[in-house]
Design a protein around this nucleic acid. Structure first.
Length: 735
RNA sequence: GCACCCUUAGCUCAGUUGGUUAGAGCGUUCGAUUCACAUUCGAAAGGUCGAAGGUUCGAAUCCUUCAGGGUGCACCA
């Protein structure tokens, strides 16, 4: 049927069709076990004493599905790993999944409620955890399979899950050690309370949402005070103003004033404090220390009474008098009405815009409360027993904040792009103690034991009569240990010795502060080592118009659909080329389609070369030591030198772009075109020389492109009659 | 309010120590194609490099101010 003189392998007679090839290639890689660096050494493909290059995969949620952000992360990390593996490094890319406590528990609770109309309290702790386990077991297969489809050469033999036995052990060990070192303490402080999920939330997880509310001005004795939250005002018996405020000169600090308030006459005390902004409103304010961080701090400074007004569910307490027992939402208007009837409402500004704290993890409004919780003190001095840091010697006294500054200032950890350093320092300087405990059931249970007033922090029960703290740890606590808990810590394993500190942490800039900071705190205080040498921050993947992808906009591009339609290679390239680190990527389907064409181009280049080199074997040295086509070879060498440099500088976008253009515009459009003439009119010697050049260069190209588009290059490699290794994945990077 | 980023062809973006005539992909228009290429090739059109000022022999690039877009953080009684 085919009339062409082709004797090239059958495979190349049809266009490259990714779905026909990708599953087979995946199976080949998986069977080889080459993603495991130990296998590489066993087979003699990597030297025993080779330098290590390691990346720990930022673990996706067990219950999640793959989205474009994950796809970008996987593409970038896989490129780095494949490149270093081919370069002869002991390359380890360690996979895992995250339990994502809050998100997972509320998801499962929601489903149970929908199906059975039962809450977690109906089920009980044990049953809920059992259900969550079933759910996570089922759904983790999804994310793992999707991850594999991207071509990720992860070492699955080292797979870790934040809730598996070893990681649980590491979390317990870390908590106890940090407590013993004095870093973790228990204390009554104001927390971000989520009345909906009935748990505390860390500062980082709070999202401020703009909201319009009426702003009330009330008469408070001789003062006018403003508020958007009349329902908190019952406990307000302190009125605070700036000491320099001329308007209130005649009032003295500590002065008592009798005045009429919501539920009758009260005695108010004047407090002078410099934190008051004189230019805001009347310059006088009342405070609610139990439900506001700033008010709490003022109260602590002056030793004032702190009384709760609202309970954990948002219900007013007896202090509210006739309003007690009402939910704050409903009580607000009734309270305003009452004040109105007493003639205490001076004026109401409608449409006052302010920011309201919400729980970004699917919760509701945040209601600050005072609670006894476990905290990680960022300014607490402790003795670091073992340290490998430049500026912090073993046995010295330091604080977590000092560590956080030191490792970046000394460049032991390099943040890329560099501009994020500024943001990092700003964040570190404003860092407050981290509230570790969560009133959730799913998570690592805090290893603290109570008996009456006694508290013991240790892994196992101290004995009869001791009860374990019912709370669990913030999910980021276990995430903070990730670089070393996955390598076997607290045991002194060979993996830990070889692969820690890891080479690169690659993640989205949006979680720099959730995660990166915590990893540094944990790693340095527990192992004395930095967790990673480079932090590579990728941008967010947006739609073609630069909008965030969201369900409501209907502009989500699903990576799996893209893989099915255009192949994983095209999906990878579309996320790499044009995606400078730290900048957002605009992705449109057209772009993905464009790179599918490129895979096909490569396919046809191969076909041409194989057709024109029938029966010709690659001559060692002939290509390298031939003075005639020197310009072509110099160009090729230069290309790889450039690509090498770009990859070491983490400019994967430019490296891929360079290869792309060489292959298409130079190699295919010019060199191959020219070869047609050579094969038609050239002398035998010229032909031979050109055949050798094409055969060799094809292999260079396949190697160069392999980290970026592993499938098509491996598929072609499998069809080559002559090659140095069974799999391109482990071929040697050209030097 | 403070900070950071972006603004270059119709669209998406390169252009990293300042150095010829500012580039690519997609799109558009015209043409070629018995050729490795359904997914090919060639060519053309398309730019006051956000604005203004400054430094310099020379500025898309460095500095200042401003405008528009985006993001983070803080405040909000």
């Amino acid at each position: 049927m085919d009339e062409r003189k082709s004797a090239a392998p059958e495979a190349f007679l049809k266009p490259y069709n990714p779905p026909d090839r990708e599953p087979g290639i995946l199976a080949l890689w998986e069977k080889s076990g080459y993603a495991n660096p130990d296998v590489m050494i066993e087979k003699g493909l990597t030297a025993k004493d080779a330098e290590a290059f390691s990346i720990v995969l930022p673990p996706p949620n067990v219950t999640g599905t793959l989205h474009m952000g994950h796809a970008a992360m996987l593409a970038i990390e896989d490129i780095l790993i494949r490149y270093h593996r081919m370069k002869g490094f002991r390359a380890l890319w360690l996979p895992g999944t995250d339990s994502a406590a809050i998100a997972t528990q509320s998801k499962v609770e929601g489903e149970i409620y929908k199906a059975e109309k039962k809450t977690r309290h109906d089920l009980g702790r044990e049953e809920l955890l059992r259900r969550i386990d079933i759910f996570t077991d089922e759904s983790k297969a999804t994310i793992i399979n999707q991850t594999k489809k991207m071509g990720s050469s992860l070492d699955w033999s080292r797979y870790a899950y934040t809730m598996d036995e070893k990681r649980y052990e590491a979390v317990m060990e870390a908590f106890v050690r940090m407590y013993d070192a004095g870093l973790i303490y228990r204390g009554d402080r104001i927390v971000n309370w989520d009345p909906k999920l009935q748990t505390t939330v860390s500062d980082e997880e709070i999202e401020y949402v703009e909201q319009k509310d009426p702003f009330y001005h009330f008469q408070y004795g001789p003062f006018v005070i403003g508020t958007v939250r009349p329902e908190t005002k019952f406990g307000d018996k302190y009125v605070v103003m700036h000491p320099d405020d001329e308007r209130y000169k005649k009032f003295t600090h500590g002065q008592k004033i009798e005045l009429e308030w919501i539920n009758g006459p009260i005695t108010a005390t004047v407090i002078k404090d410099e934190s008051v902004d004189m230019s805001f409103g009347s310059g006088a304010m009342t405070i609610t220390p139990a439900h506001d961080l700033n008010d709490f701090e003022i109260a602590k400074r002056h030793g004032l009474d702190i009384e709760r007004v609202i309970d954990d569910r948002g219900i007013l307490l007896p202090i509210a008098g006739e309003f007690a027992g009402q939910h704050i939402k409903k009580a607000r208007s009734a309270i305003v009405e009452k004040l109105q009837s007493k003639g205490l409402v001076v004026k109401v500004d409608e449409g006052y815009t302010h920011n309201v704290a919400t729980n970004s993890r699917g919760g509701g409004m945040i209601e600050p409360q005072i609670k006894r919780q476990w905290w990680l003190g960022v300014d607490r001095e402790f003795t670091i027993e073992h340290s490998e840091l430049q500026n912090i010697p073993s046995g010295s006294k330091t604080t977590l904040k000092k560590i956080l500054r030191s490792v970046i200032e000394s460049k032991e950890i390099q943040i890329m792009p560099e501009r994020f350093e500024k943001i990092y320092f700003h964040w570190v300087d404003n860092l407050r103690d981290w509230c570790l405990s969560r009133q959730l059931w799913f998570g690592h249970r805090i290893p603290a034991w109570f008996k009456g007033d006694e508290v013991k922090v240790q892994k196992n029960s101290p004995g009869e009569g001791w009860e374990q703290d019912p709370d669990t740890l913030d999910t980021w606590f276990s995430s903070g240990l990730w670089t070393f808990s996955t390598l076997g810590w607290p045991e002194k394993t060979a993996d830990l010795e070889t692969y820690h500190p890891t080479s690169v942490l690659e993640t989205g800039y949006d979680i720099l502060f959730f995660w990166v900071i915590r990893m540094i705190e944990m790693s340095v205080s527990m192992t004395g080592q930095i967790p990673f040498r480079h932090v590579y921050l990728h941008g967010l993947v947006r739609d073609g118009q630069g909008r965030k992808m969201s369900k409501s906009l209907g502009n989500i591009i699903d990576p799996l659909t893209m893989i099915d339609k255009y192949g994983a290679d095209a999906a990878r390239l579309s996320l790499i080329i044009g995606a400078q680190m730290g900048n957002d990527v605009k992705l449109s389907e057209d772009r993905v389609r464009g790179y599918k064409h490129f895979a096909n181009k490569l396919w046809n280049i191969t076909r041409f070369i194989l057709e024109n080199t029938q029966g010709v074997s690659m001559k060692d040295g002939f290509d390298e030591h031939n003075e005639h086509d020197d310009a072509l070879r110099t160009e090729r060498r230069q290309l790889f030198a450039d690509v090498d440099k770009l990859i070491t500088e983490f400019r994967l976008d430019l490296a891929a772009d360079k290869l792309y253009h060489y292959v298409w515009d130079r190699f295919a459009a010019e060199i191959i075109e020219d070869s047609k003439k050579v094969f038609k009119e050239g002398s035998e010697e010229e032909k031979t020389r050109r055949q050798q050049f094409l055969l060799h260069t094809l292999q260079w190209i396949l190697k160069g492109l392999h980290p970026f588009m592993p499938f098509v290059t491996e598929a072609i490699w499998q069809e080559l009659p002559e090659k140095e290794s069974d799999l391109l994945m482990v071929a040697k990077w050209p030097v």
